Amino acid sequence: MKVYEFNGLPNPARVRIALAEKGLTEKVEFISVDVPNGEHRQPEFLAKNPLGAVPVLELEDGTTISECTAITEYLDHITGEITLTGRTPKERATIHMMQRRAESGLLDAGTTYFHHATPGLGPDLETYQCAEWGQHQRQKAVSGMHYFNEVLAKQDYLAGEQFSMADITAFAGLAFADFAKIDIPVECGHLQAWRERVSQRPSISG
């Protein structure tokens, strides 16, 4: 398998965590795509993902899979034991629900703020910006932090009592929030404690 990525971006980080959780890191060849210089918009990469986003998983038969949720689903099912995406219908539904909330209300909101309300990746790549929309998304990210703090006041992880794909997304979202200078509100102690606990997992700390 090959993973096309740019190390340091939040979505490639999500796939790296999933790979480590599944013990698959050593079975993957990582290929760097020079996102800051626009390599992800070149025809060769667009043939692998028409949306021009990293990461992309390429299988041995040439099949390419983009979108972190889809990649994680694939990785979670090729090792035999399902650990990240749920085993029962209820688990699967809950994990996917919370994963989407983490993606929309934290990770995507933070990245939209970065791309629209800051210089982002520079004028060559940020060809359209709406600062007002970016600021709105920043507030959405902060609201998301409050929401997840309430969730984590009642349970150990976002989708229940087991670490899952939803936690990976939220952890990556908070890491990008740090980069974008969106602080976790001081009153969100449960979220901060969860983050510190999750950061000790070998898939992240290693």
Score class of each variant (00 low, 15 high):
Ala159Gln: 04
Leu57Cys: 03
Cys68Phe: 08
Leu152Phe: 01
Lys154Tyr: 07
Tyr147Leu: 10
Ala166Val: 05
Met165Ile: 05
Pro36Tyr: 05
Thr111Tyr: 12
Val33Gly: 09
Val198Trp: 01
Glu161Cys: 00
Asp124Cys: 12
Arg101Cys: 11
Ala159Gly: 05
Glu60Pro: 04
Ala117Lys: 01
Leu158Pro: 02
Asp34Ser: 08
Val28Asp: 06
Pro43Tyr: 08
Leu84Ala: 05
Leu107Ser: 10
Glu60Ser: 14
His116Phe: 03
Met1Ile: 11
Ala70Thr: 10
Asp167Leu: 03
Phe179Met: 11
Thr79Gly: 09
Cys130Asn: 15
Gln192Ser: 13
Ser205Glu: 14
Ile168Pro: 01
Phe6Met: 12
Ile95Asn: 00
Lys2Cys: 10
Leu191Lys: 02
Ser143Cys: 11
Glu103Ile: 08
Ala166Pro: 06
Asn37Asp: 03
Ala170Tyr: 00
Gln137Ser: 12
Tyr128Gly: 04
Ala13Thr: 15
His96Phe: 11
Ser32Glu: 14
Lys48Gln: 06
His115Asn: 12
Ala141Tyr: 01
Gly173Leu: 03
Pro185Ala: 08
Trp133Arg: 07
Gly134Ala: 10
His136Phe: 14
Val33Gln: 07
Lys27His: 14
Glu91Leu: 00
Ser164Met: 00
Ala166Gly: 07
Val33Trp: 06
Leu19Asp: 06
Leu9Val: 13
Leu174His: 01
Met97Ala: 11
Ser32Asn: 13
Asn7Val: 13
Glu29Thr: 13
Glu58Ser: 08
Glu81Asn: 08
Pro36Asp: 07
Gln162Arg: 07
Asp183Leu: 12
Pro36Glu: 03
Cys68Ser: 15
Ala47Ser: 12
Glu187Cys: 14
Lys181Cys: 12
Val56Ala: 06
Ser205Phe: 11
Leu107Glu: 12
Ser164Asn: 01
Glu39Lys: 06
Val151Tyr: 00
Gly134Thr: 09
His77Ala: 13
Asp156Phe: 07
Arg101Trp: 09
Glu5Ile: 11
Asp183Lys: 14
Pro185His: 12
Met97Asn: 09
Phe30Asp: 05
Ala13Val: 12
Leu84Arg: 02
Gly110Phe: 02
Ile184Tyr: 00
Gln42Asp: 05
Leu106Gly: 01
Thr118Phe: 04
Glu29His: 07
Ile184Ala: 06
Gly52Pro: 00
